[in-house]
Amino acid sequence: MAAAVIILRPLRRGAAWVGKRLLPEAGGVRRGWWRQAQVFGKLTLFGRGLALSAVSYLGYEAYNSISHSAVVHASVKVEEIIEQADYLYGSGETKQLYQLLTQHKNSEDVEILWRLARASRDLAQLSSTSAEEKKQLVYEALEYAKKALEKNESSFAVHKWYAICISDVGDYEGIKTKIANAYVIKEHFQKAIELNPKDATSIHLMGIWCYSFAEMPWYQSKIAAMLFATPPTSTYEEALSYFHKAEEADPNFYSKNLLLLGKTYLKLNNKKMALLWLTKTRDYPAHTEEDKQVQKEAVELLNSI
């Protein structure tokens, strides 16, 4: 973990795909059926007026039936988009996922919006993405996350990805902004955990927040003290607690959580427990490039102990 504040690295693929390798990321409360309009106008009891009103009412009923069918169709379409998106996410098809979801960037559906924020962010993290494109995608991801949060504050996935996106933007706006955003980031991670206490990724990210502030360099601490009367702080003990809670929520869900358990125990001078978790990290099946990098770091730490 670099010594900068709140540096959040790419997350394990997560979504609706069977297997321990992937993290469940249901997006919170789905929107219900659109409320139907009420019948307009009043029936009159006088001859032609009654006939016209009856025709109007029958016309409304026909319109209402068509509208209801359109809503059902729209709902089914959204479900199909989400199903396709989750399959591509689980398969690691980042570019195809982004291409799929950007076709629906004007959607008002929260489930599509937070997935679009995630897809934009993941595309930005690819080594093949240029520095200019990465910056554009990072800010784009934040806009999608903001829109999703405006639509629904009851979705744990929205809060999680909003916090992640704010953190990413901080990399382009300097250390002062990054520290100033720290409270907001923490607030949304905590909200995500409150809404879904079983989401291991939110708990893991809260652990990273604590770890980052526990190892904050002196010059960053000085800046934080200048910005806040009570600057954000944390301890390795607090970070360790979150990493353990993440494992309890979903054992062996993420190689980096195992690594950070080992690194945190090293910070606390507990070599016995550090060896345990670093060995688990080394032996973790490497399915992604990140897993391989994490294993390499674990081996280097093991050799240094």
Rank of each mutant, 00 (worst) to 15 (best):
Q293P: 01
F46S: 09
I66W: 11
N270E: 13
T288N: 09
Y183P: 01
T279H: 02
L45V: 11
L11D: 04
E187A: 14
V110P: 00
S154D: 14
P217E: 05
R12Q: 07
K151M: 06
N257K: 01
Y254N: 03
S75D: 09
K151R: 08
D86I: 08
A286M: 10
Y236F: 15
L260N: 15
V184Y: 02
Y219I: 09
R48K: 12
Q96R: 15
V5A: 12
E289V: 13
H73A: 14
A200G: 04
L302K: 05
K271V: 08
I66E: 09
E237W: 05
E61T: 03
E289W: 06
E108T: 15
T288I: 05
K263T: 01
E187R: 12
S221K: 15
T44K: 11
S241I: 03
H159A: 09
A131N: 12
A163E: 05
V29Y: 04
D168S: 09
G92L: 08
K176D: 15
R282H: 07
R9C: 05
A180G: 02
A163C: 06
A180Q: 15
P10M: 04
E140M: 10
K135I: 02
H244W: 12
A286I: 01
G92Q: 10
K272T: 15
G92A: 09
K95Q: 13
G262A: 08
A214P: 09
V39F: 07
I112E: 00
Y63W: 15
G59C: 03
G207H: 03
T129N: 09
P217H: 06
T235A: 04
K271P: 07
I166C: 13
E79N: 14
V71N: 07
E132W: 07
L276I: 02
R35I: 10
N181T: 01
L266P: 02
G41T: 03
A131Y: 06
G59M: 06
S127T: 13
Q36C: 01
V169T: 14
I81W: 10
G207F: 04
D122V: 05
Y162I: 07
K222Y: 08
K222L: 13
S202Y: 01
R121G: 07
A246F: 03
K222F: 13
L205M: 15
I193V: 14
L101N: 07
K256N: 08
K146L: 09
V55D: 12
S67C: 04
L275C: 01
K160E: 13
Y57G: 02
Q84G: 07
K176R: 14
R12I: 03
E247V: 00
W34N: 10
A239P: 03
L276W: 00
G207K: 05
L261R: 00
A224P: 02
V71A: 06
N257F: 00
D86P: 06
M1G: 13
R9Q: 11
E187I: 06
S167M: 03
E238S: 08
